Computed example of a mutant assay.
Amino acid sequence: MIVMLISDESKVERQYIVRFSKDLAARQTEESWQMIECAAIPELVKAVRDKIRTDIICVDITIPKALELTMELRKNTPSAYIILIASPSISPMTYMRPSIGAESLMLKPLTREQIQEVLSEALGTYIRRFYKPDENKVFVLENKGGRDLIDYENIYFFESREKRVFLNTGVREYGFYDTLEQLEERLMEGFIRCHRSFLVNRNKIEKIFLSQNRLLLKDDFEIPLSRTYKPRLKEFMARGDI
C-alpha cells in the first residue's frame, strides 16, 4: 500500500490534490493507495505523534507550525517523498534544507495547472522508486495486498512466531512468511540475532542486561537474550558497535 498525506487548510486545494492524485495513481499503478487528509494543524500533529508511515507527503508550510511538523514527518519516514506548498514571500532558505529534504515545490496561489504539473512529476518519480527501491535503505515487504517499503531506521525487531515472521516498527506490526535465518543473512550486521525468535535492530538497543538475559530497546521494548547468541552480542559490544 502507498500512503499519501496531504496537509492543507484550503478545502478546495486539498480536495483537488486528493482527487488528482487518486486519478493519477489509478492510471499508473495497481497498488492500493491510502489518502490521509489533514484539514488543520491538530490533525497534522496527530499524524506526527502517531508516527504514521507515509510514502508521499504534501504539506502547506505557510501555516504556522507546519514546517516544524514536516521536519518531524521526515524523521518518522526518512525515505518519504516530500512536496511543499510555499509562498513567494517565504525565503527558500527557510524550507530548502537537509532536515526536510523536499523534492518538489508548489507556490501559492495554486492553480490546477501547477498542481497537475508538479504532482504528475512527483508521483511519477515516486512510483518508479517504489518499484525499484534502494534496498540498502528500505525493507521491501511483499504480500497479497501489494508491497510496503519500510525504512530500516523504523524497524525495531523481527519476531518469529506462529510459523511467520513479524516486523515491528514500534507502532505497527507486519506479518509475512520468511525465516529469521534468511533475514539475518540478508540484513547483515545492521540487525543482530539475540534469540532463536528475535532479530533486533542494533541502533534501537538502549541497554544490554547480560546477567538478566534481556535487551532493552527504545520505547521500552524488552527482548530476551539467549545463551546461544550472547557471545556474538559481546563481540559487537567489544567492537563498540552497540
Rank of each mutant, 00 (worst) to 15 (best):
R239W: 15
Y16Q: 09
R193H: 12
E235D: 02
R232E: 13
I115Y: 04
T169H: 13
E235C: 08
M1A: 06
I208N: 10
K144F: 04
R129M: 05
R186F: 02
R14E: 02
I63L: 07
E117K: 15
M188T: 11
G101S: 07
N143D: 14
R97Q: 15
R112E: 10
E153W: 05
S226N: 07
R214L: 07
V18F: 12
L5G: 14
F158W: 06
A66P: 02
I208A: 15
I57Q: 06
E30I: 15
S89W: 01
E181Y: 10
R202F: 09
A40M: 10
E159N: 01
F209W: 01
L44H: 01
T62V: 03
M237N: 02
E159L: 00
V45A: 05
R129D: 03
A66F: 08
I57E: 10
K207V: 10
G145F: 05
L5W: 15
K163N: 14
A39G: 10
I52T: 13
L67A: 15
R128M: 13
Q114W: 03
K218A: 14
F191H: 08
A86V: 10
D219S: 10
I208C: 13
I17M: 11
R196P: 04
R74D: 14
L110Q: 07
M35R: 01
R196K: 14
E184H: 04
P98V: 03
E189C: 09
P224C: 13
F158D: 04
G101K: 07
S21F: 11
F198I: 05
F130W: 13
M96E: 03
R19M: 04
Y126S: 12
S104G: 11
T179L: 06
L73T: 00
E159H: 04
I223F: 05
Q114V: 13
A102Q: 05
M93D: 00
C38M: 12
R196Y: 13
R193L: 06
D50E: 10
K234M: 08
E113I: 12
K46L: 07
L123V: 12
K75S: 02
E159V: 00
D55M: 07
L149Y: 05
E222A: 09
G101W: 06
I205A: 03
I6N: 02
M237H: 04
M96A: 08
E222M: 08
M71N: 07
I155E: 11
N203E: 15
L183D: 01
Y156V: 08
I36Y: 08
T54I: 14
I56P: 00
T111F: 00
A47H: 01
E117L: 09
I2Q: 03
L84M: 10
E13Y: 07
L216D: 03
E135C: 09
K163P: 08
R147C: 05
Q15C: 01
E9N: 12
E9V: 14
V118F: 09
